[in-house]
Amino acid sequence: METRLIPVIDASGYRSYMEVPGKTFFEAACLIDGLLSEAVRLDMSLLHLTEQELHELGVRKECRQIRTQLLYLYQDSIDALNDGHSIQQLRTRIDELTVRLYELEESIGKNEEYEGLIVPRPSTHRITGEKVGQCQQCERAVYSGQKYPDPEEEGLFCNYHCRTLYRRNNKKSPL
């Protein structure tokens, strides 16, 4: 695995370097920036990052700060509920921070693959042939070029998994 030497500065102004895994300085800086304490910070003057990368690092830092604020607000709301106090103001602040966090993460493209915003690669698997019927379990089309369980046994199924499910669901219970 590739590593990079990332410059950091502690609270006293002492500069040191940390060896961090990453293909690029930006990847390594993103990884280590989230792990650094408040007393130690990245030395941005020596990183030579683009404006876009600097912006993304700033957004990531702001997201971490918002998450910390949300944690404290959730803890305060739990305490308020236990004491019988209203949490309406806390709820409003939580909602505002949650919206802000979502907007920030959306601006840098975070979590796109989880939200379906990144289109998955199309499958290279193709089924050929003519349609011979429908699966008795899931009602998908079954094609002649497809490898499927023998229809002579119990019926037509698109795969062995559907046949197993069909058998399990249609077991006759002893009387």
Rank of each mutant, 00 (worst) to 15 (best):
L175G: 07
L165K: 12
L97N: 13
D10T: 11
M18I: 14
T124D: 08
L73G: 01
E106S: 10
R93D: 01
M18C: 06
R168E: 10
T124E: 08
F157H: 10
E139L: 12
K172H: 09
Q89Y: 08
T50Q: 03
L70K: 05
Y114Q: 10
G155L: 00
Y160G: 15
I6Y: 04
N111K: 03
L70T: 02
F25L: 13
C158W: 00
L73Y: 12
A141P: 02
R60N: 05
D43A: 10
T68F: 12
L90K: 02
S86N: 09
K172L: 13
I108W: 02
Q137F: 03
R126P: 00
L5M: 15
P21A: 12
G145A: 08
T164D: 13
R67K: 12
L36N: 01
D79E: 14
G13T: 06
K61C: 08
I6H: 04
P149Q: 07
R126E: 10
G34I: 06
Q69R: 15
M18E: 14
T124V: 09
E53C: 08
S144M: 06
Q65E: 15
Y72T: 09
G34Q: 04
P174G: 07
M1H: 12
Y17E: 14
A141T: 11
F157Y: 15
I87W: 00
E153G: 01
E152N: 06
V142M: 11
H55A: 07
L31I: 06
N111E: 07
V132N: 03
T24C: 14
T3D: 04
N159F: 03
T3N: 13
S37D: 13
P151R: 12
K131Q: 10
T128S: 12
I32P: 14
T124R: 07
Q88D: 14
I66S: 02
L81N: 07
Q146H: 11
M1G: 14
R41I: 14
V142A: 06
R64V: 00
N159A: 05
E38H: 08
M44L: 10
C63E: 09
L36E: 01
T68M: 05
T24N: 15
I87Y: 00
R100K: 14
N159R: 02
C30I: 13
T128C: 02
A39I: 12
E27F: 05
R126K: 14
C158S: 02
L117S: 02
L104Y: 01
R4H: 03
S107A: 12
I118V: 15
R168D: 09
P120S: 00
G145S: 04
V20W: 05
L101Y: 03
E96M: 07
E115D: 05
T68C: 06
L117H: 10
R4F: 01
E2S: 13
L73Q: 05
K131F: 01
I118S: 04
G145K: 06
V99R: 15
K147M: 11
E139I: 10
R60Q: 06
E19P: 06
N111P: 00
G129W: 05
Y74K: 14
I78F: 04
C135I: 06
Q75M: 08
